[in-house]
Every structure is written in structure tokens, then in C-alpha cells.
Amino acid sequence: MTESLPAVGRTAVGVAALRALESRRPDRLFDDPYATAFYQAGRSALPATRDGLGPVFASQVAIRTRFYDDYLLGAGCPQVVLLAAGLDARAFRLPWPPGTRLFELDLPEVLAFKDRVLAGQGAQPSCERVAVGADLRDDWAAALRAAGFDARVPAAWLAEGLLVYLSREDADRMLTAVTELSAPGSRVSFEHGTTDGLLARARATSGGEHVTRLWKGGLGRRAPEWLREHGWEPATVTRSALAERYGRQDEQTADGFVTAVL
């Protein structure tokens, strides 16, 4: 079942494991009832040395998941687009307003694996979910339009855990396409910063190279400037500030998240 998952798709299995751990905490920041099923179905695809990476990424994954959940539900957009949707089940686990249309873009192999697991759980989406198999380094915009996306209607875009896997050129190309597809009032959010702290800790952990060798850096700290130059109004928040807001202990870091409105 997992043999066809690409390397980046396999990292989504590890993230699902961390969401499952967070969901079992009495003080959990979110509840993902499908995360355990994703992990159990995909764990054989993970490297044998994976266990040491959990503590490195656990806090970051918990904080970003909660932050993005709140961002998407508060955006007030009738269209939602999850770029590199991975194995998060937001279409199924969040209370979407009536009429919400949610597009999940990811590699066809990842979406096929995801759909098989969700079908086995009898999961039903709480919105209109449209899965779009596409490589974000190719012409994914055409595939999104063909699936029914309306560029005249405001959309909330999310690129969770994505830009770090893209080169600066690919990140620029992807966000340019997002801008061209966005009606006034649209929003976008993704991680902001260099992730230097995470990178150093992951590299120092046994098995960490399986993840860090895939990282290319994206826009790094230039994201707010890039967004302003392309007509967006950005705002940033650090992971440290969010940890304090959520009552969690986390490393002191300037890395965090950017949101922007067009």
C-alpha cells in the first residue's frame, strides 16, 4: 500500500504520527481522529531510524496545525485550497461553514493512499472536497481550474510544510500562480523563516538526513517582502509567540508563519 509513496509523501506519514500523538493529549491543541490510521497504514514506508525525529518536530507540528486550523476557519472564504495537502484530514475533521468547497492538491500517489485509508475509516467530509492530483512543480493551476476552481471567487490558500521542499525559483513560481488565481479578498498562509534551528537539530538526530536532504529552503525570510511586491498585505507571527498563546513550551525562535490578504 505504501510502496508507491514518493519520498516527500513518506514524510507526511511521520507528520501524521505526530498529529496522532497530539490528539491523544488531554490538553491537545486539535483533534485529528484519522491520524493514527494514516500512520498505521504507512509506517512501513518510514526509515527504521525515524523514532528519534519525533521530539524534534512534535512541537512545531502541533503549533502549526492549530494555527492553520484557526486561519482557515477564520478566513471566511468559500473556496479553500490546500497545496501539498498531505495526510491531514481537514476536509473531514473541521466544522466548515455550509457551501465551503475545499480543493486538496498533492501527488496522485499521495491522494490515492489517503483516499484508501479514509475509505477504510468510513470518513465523510464536512464540506465539498475535491482532490486534485498534480505536481506543484508543473502546471498545477490548469488542473485546479479543470477541477472547478473559480478564480473570480476569494480563496483561502494554505501551503503547510511545503515551501522548505522547494527551491527559491519553484517557490516563486508557485506563489506567482497563487497570486494570478486569487480574487480580491483571498488569503494565503505558510511557514516563514529559515528553519535553521530545526535543520540543525534534525541533522544531529539519527535518521534526520532522510528529511533534511529533501529541504531546499523556499523563500527563506524573504516571504513578507515577496508578498508585498506582488500585491499582498502580509503579517507574521513567531512560533514562540504562538507557543505562549497556546500554553506550550517551545524553543525560542524567530521562525514562524506568514498570512496575507489580497
Rank of each mutant, 00 (worst) to 15 (best):
M1F: 12
M1R: 12
E3L: 13
S4T: 14
L5F: 13
L5H: 13
P6I: 03
V8F: 01
V8I: 15
A17V: 00
E22K: 11
E22Q: 13
S23W: 02
R24P: 00
P26I: 10
L29A: 09
D31L: 11
T36L: 12
Q40H: 14
L46W: 05
T49S: 14
R50M: 14
G54V: 13
A58G: 01
A58W: 00
R66V: 04
Y68H: 12
Y68S: 06
Y68G: 01
Y71A: 11
L73C: 03
A75P: 08
A75G: 10
V80H: 02
V81N: 07
L83K: 03
A85C: 14
A85E: 02
L87P: 05
D88G: 14
A89M: 11
R90K: 15
R93C: 05
R93D: 03
L94N: 09
L94G: 08
P97M: 06
P98C: 01
P98R: 07
L102G: 03
E109D: 12
V110N: 13
L111Y: 04
L111V: 10
K114N: 01
G120P: 09
G120D: 05
A123L: 09
Q124V: 12
R129Y: 06
R137C: 13
A143R: 15
G148P: 11
V164W: 04
Y165G: 04
S167M: 06
R168P: 11
E169A: 09
D170M: 06
L175N: 06
A177C: 05
T179I: 07
L181Y: 04
S182W: 07
A183T: 06
P184N: 01
P184W: 01
R187K: 11
S189P: 03
F190T: 14
G193N: 10
T194F: 03
D196N: 12
G197Y: 04
R203Y: 00
V211R: 00
R213L: 12
R213W: 09
L214Q: 15
G217Q: 05
G218H: 10
L219I: 08
R222L: 04
P224C: 04
E225H: 11
W226V: 08
R228V: 13
H230W: 02
E233H: 14
P234D: 01
P234A: 03
V237I: 14
T238S: 15
S240D: 14
R245H: 07
G247N: 08
Q249M: 04
D250C: 07
E251R: 15
Q252V: 09
A254Q: 11
F257K: 02
V258I: 13
L262G: 02
